[in-house]
Amino acid sequence: MSALWGKRIASVAAVVPVLCLLAAGLAGCEYADDARPSPSGAGNSKVTHPVPMASVDPELVAEQDRNMAAIEILMADVPIGAGGAAGSINGQGNGEGGLGFSTQLTDTATYTVTAGCIGAPGAKLTVSSGPGNALLDLPTSCAGVLSHDIELQPGPVSVSLVAAGEGYQKAATGVVRVYEAASLSPGPH
């Protein structure tokens, strides 16, 4: 039995030096590591510079703030209900840009969609229940508040308001809200 045990130790003893040589050979290998720069900085010719922030026109910001304050006054009595959005509705008159929000309705009910905008000749209000499924697509004047009642089913609903008219409406702002028609509703629908 001891002769058998001695042969096993001799074969293991023969393999260990080979493994040590293999490990020593691999330790000398160099691997490229793009995630870390080399300590000396040599060989790293890529220099990145931060992208400068665009300057904001203070007059435009002031006009947007005035428009937002005015639209908030117009919409002060409109409940938020199932959701809403407020902010820039600037666009290029072709449906690009604007503001929007999505909400998940839990009940089938008649909802009131109310929108108001200032700073553009008009806007387009769109309510949809999925891509390509517009339930409401109304042009509106940016001279006041538009409210429209619509029967909506449970599920996702998206609402958007985009400035319409010629040219880019930089300072155009708006507010959109969706709430159940049974809640406090402002004026006629």
Score class of each variant (00 low, 15 high):
M1Y: 11
A3K: 12
L4A: 15
L4I: 02
W5N: 13
K7W: 13
R8K: 12
R8G: 11
I9K: 05
V16C: 08
L19S: 07
L21E: 10
A27W: 04
C29E: 05
Y31K: 05
A32E: 08
A35I: 08
R36W: 01
S40A: 10
S45N: 09
V47L: 13
H49L: 12
M53P: 01
A54P: 15
S55D: 09
E59C: 07
V61T: 13
Q64K: 14
E72N: 14
I73C: 00
I73T: 14
M75Y: 03
M75Q: 01
A76E: 12
D77K: 10
V78Q: 08
P79D: 09
I80K: 11
I80A: 09
I80G: 06
G81N: 03
G81R: 03
G83H: 06
S88E: 12
I89N: 08
E96A: 14
G97K: 08
G98P: 06
G100E: 06
F101H: 06
S102H: 05
D107L: 07
A109G: 11
A109R: 09
T110A: 11
Y111Q: 11
T112E: 09
T112Q: 13
V113G: 03
A115S: 11
I118C: 04
G119L: 02
G119Q: 02
G119N: 03
A120Y: 01
A123V: 05
K124W: 06
V127M: 03
P131S: 13
A134K: 14
A134I: 06
L135Q: 15
L135M: 13
D137V: 04
L138F: 10
P139A: 10
T140N: 00
G144V: 02
H148Q: 15
I150N: 11
E151Q: 13
E151T: 12
S158D: 12
S158W: 04
V159P: 06
V162K: 06
G165M: 02
E166Q: 13
Y168S: 00
K170G: 03
A172S: 10
V178Y: 07
Y179W: 07
E180Q: 15
A182F: 11
S183I: 00
P188R: 02
